[in-house]
Computed example of a mutant assay.
Amino acid sequence: MPTKQLRDLKYRPTEIIKKCKEEGRPAYIAGPMVRYSKLPFRELCRFYNVDIVYTPMILAREFVRNEIARYTDFTTNEADRSVIVQVGVNNVDDFMKFVEMIHPYVDAIGINCGCPIKEQVREGIGAALMSQPDLVADLVRTAKEKYGDAICIDTKIRIHSDINQTIEFVKKVVDAGTDMITVHGRTKNTRSSVPVNLDAIKVVCDTVGSTIPVIANGDCFTLDDFIKIASYTGVDGVMSARGVLSNPALFTGLDKTPWSAVEMFMHLATSYGLPYKLVQYQVAHLLEDIIPKKILKKINEQQNMADLIDCLDEHFVLKRKGEKGFATSVEPQWNLELTSLTI
């Protein structure tokens, strides 16, 4: 059995969840988001006490075959913990190669059985796996037989229209050795505008019992949502994706993005490096509910990083790391001398 292990076991998600239980609460978890859950955003989430953070989904087939994909899809550092790398995969061979390459650099590996994007489903990835419980069980079993406790596996699922199918699916992957289950309480065809099915998540939680942790996913946009979901279902943690994208501080109880998140994100994005358009999109998500639309429109019109920073400096007091009060303000800090907008 491989012994290479670069990550401290105390950051394993199952250990983090145990620690949260000792504190009398479920775990705060930031879910995987295509493009967005890169290293700077993961660190931003941890600045607001998120316990476990996912990477975006990485396609195993591309990762194991393409060196460029490995460099562009995954970056990490010593502060990037607890982190779960999410993988899109449809066969055991690719999965085992992926696990071999990446497991020393992450705290867990999450099998994506929930992504409803049609292109992924056609490839047999994501939600397509919900109709292949035996394949998913094989993925889990084969990896655990080789690596045992050297790896931690999360199986992230959606529910079926018939909850009995979900129960049977869960039983198979638990028997195969998955270390945790994450349940998005919608089917692959359910629109995000339809409320998440908390009863189905509760059934999964009751089915698993205390054998492994169960995480709830869906409709967590505020701390009140977190409390409601956890209380109703009895899960060990609650995951937010769209919620933390707009407000990384939601688990602190703030109901809108604090200005500190904008300053910290700009610091992390420029320090680590991100494609400009991705920085622009994420800044827009952070600001969309806290500044006037005319200023947001102007931010979205900027064509490069220098112009974006100039635009932010024109309208706001955007403090840099090292300046007094950096990343501490809740309300937007307006540059009243330069902005032409009446606040």
Rank of each mutant, 00 (worst) to 15 (best):
A79R: 13
V106W: 11
T233Q: 06
Q302G: 02
P275L: 08
D162A: 06
V330L: 10
I229Y: 03
L338R: 15
V244K: 14
D162Q: 13
K321Q: 13
G273V: 11
P32I: 04
F226W: 05
P275Y: 01
L268K: 07
S193Y: 01
T328V: 04
V136P: 00
R46S: 09
D134C: 03
E168M: 00
V170M: 08
F41M: 05
N91C: 07
S329W: 05
G325P: 01
M57K: 01
Y105G: 03
I16N: 00
I157P: 09
Y147T: 06
A261F: 09
L44M: 03
Q302K: 11
I84Y: 06
L198Y: 10
W334P: 12
A327W: 00
F74H: 07
I157Y: 12
E23F: 03
A79F: 08
N77C: 02
P332S: 08
T270H: 07
Y105F: 14
R35K: 10
A261I: 11
H184F: 00
Q280F: 07
R35M: 14
V106E: 14
D307P: 08
H160A: 12
P292L: 01
P292F: 07
K324Q: 07
G273W: 02
N66I: 13
G209L: 04
K18R: 10
E123R: 14
T55Q: 10
L318W: 09
V330E: 14
G88I: 15
M266G: 05
V330A: 13
M266C: 13
C205M: 09
G177T: 00
Y232M: 09
